[in-house]
Computed example of a mutant assay.
Amino acid sequence: MTHPRTLDAHQAHSRLHELIVLDVRTPSEYATGHIPGALNIPLDHLTRALPDIRKAADRGDILVVCASGTRSENACKSLTDAGITTATLIGGTTAWTDGGHTLHHPEGATRTSWSMERQVRFTAGAVVLTGLALGRLRPAFRLASAGIAGGLVFSALTNTCGMAALLAKLPHNRPDQGDLDATLAALRDH
């Protein structure tokens, strides 16, 4: 099995005119700013988009991006397993902006959203605090805090995040069907 190729922000910026950029973050994260020209196909919708991504890969190189590089790396592995060659942006959109490159902010994007990392931190913290507070009444509630701690350790060791996968399914993190259809049509025309 081959591993996904990587590009740093400078390499990606110099090749942006020739790359097909797929942003695998949630629609709300994408709306907060994305690499110019990037198409939003959330990670959990990648399977549905495989035929269109495969055809696009025949026409040009595909760069997959997310906020930090973790989800895009996972997406690249899935695409590689499906026989599609891709590259991932090292450090994601964070590295892109740190490198002095601008993000595109869609017109009319008024919805304020939190990054997935921030949503995970908030949810984990809220569950831990709730478990500790309720644990004063019933010690069994402390198991919720212990479960979150164990999940965070597992997440760090495996570079995956089950909580992020669950949070991505919440309505505010889901694409509208019409938006995803429009994105796939744009990918076909790219």
Results as ranks from 00 to 15, higher is better:
Thr2His: 08
Pro4Lys: 00
Arg5Ala: 07
Arg5Glu: 06
Leu7Glu: 05
His10Ile: 03
Arg15Met: 02
Leu19Gln: 05
Asp23Met: 11
Val24Gly: 14
Pro27His: 10
Pro27Ser: 14
Ser28Lys: 03
Glu29Ser: 10
Ala31Asn: 12
Thr32Asp: 11
Ile35Glu: 05
Pro36Thr: 00
Gly37Asp: 00
Leu39Glu: 06
Ile41Asp: 09
Leu43Tyr: 15
Leu43Glu: 12
Asp44Thr: 09
Thr47Gly: 12
Pro51Thr: 06
Asp52Tyr: 15
Ala57Arg: 09
Asp58Trp: 08
Arg59His: 12
Arg59Cys: 09
Arg59Trp: 10
Gly60Pro: 03
Gly60His: 09
Asp61Tyr: 09
Ile62Thr: 14
Ile62Val: 13
Leu63Ala: 07
Ala67Arg: 10
Ser68Glu: 15
Ser68Ile: 14
Gly69His: 06
Thr70Ile: 05
Thr70Asn: 11
Thr70Tyr: 10
Arg71Val: 04
Arg71Ala: 07
Ser72Thr: 11
Glu73Lys: 09
Asn74Leu: 15
Ala75Phe: 06
Lys77Asn: 10
Lys77Met: 08
Leu79Gly: 10
Asp81Arg: 06
Thr86Tyr: 04
Ala87Met: 03
Thr88Gln: 03
Gly91Arg: 07
Ala95Pro: 13
Trp96Ser: 14
Thr97Arg: 15
Gly99Asp: 15
His101Ser: 11
His101Trp: 11
Glu107Asn: 08
Ala109Asn: 05
Ala109Trp: 00
Thr110Ala: 13
Thr110Lys: 14
Ser115Arg: 06
Ser115Pro: 05
Met116Ala: 14
Met116Lys: 07
Glu117Ile: 00
Glu117Gly: 02
Arg118Ser: 11
Val120Tyr: 09
Phe122Ile: 09
Phe122Lys: 04
Gly125Gln: 08
Val128Asn: 10
Leu129Thr: 08
Thr130Asp: 01
Thr130Ile: 02
Gly131Lys: 04
Ala133Phe: 05
Ala133Lys: 03
Leu134Asp: 13
Leu134His: 09
Arg136Thr: 07
Leu137Ala: 10
Leu137Gly: 10
Pro139Cys: 08
Phe141Met: 02
Arg142Tyr: 03
Ala144Leu: 05
Ala144Gly: 00
Gly151Met: 06
Leu152His: 01
Leu152Lys: 00
Val153Glu: 05
Ser155Lys: 04
Ser155Asp: 11
Thr158Phe: 14
Thr160Leu: 06
Gly162Leu: 15
Met163Leu: 15
Ala165Asp: 13
Ala165Val: 09
Leu167Glu: 12
Lys169Gly: 06
Pro171Gln: 00
Pro171Leu: 03
His172Leu: 08
His172Tyr: 10
His172Glu: 13
Arg174Gly: 02
Pro175His: 03
Asp179Trp: 01
Thr183Arg: 13
Ala186Lys: 07
Leu187Tyr: 00
Asp189Lys: 13
His190Glu: 02
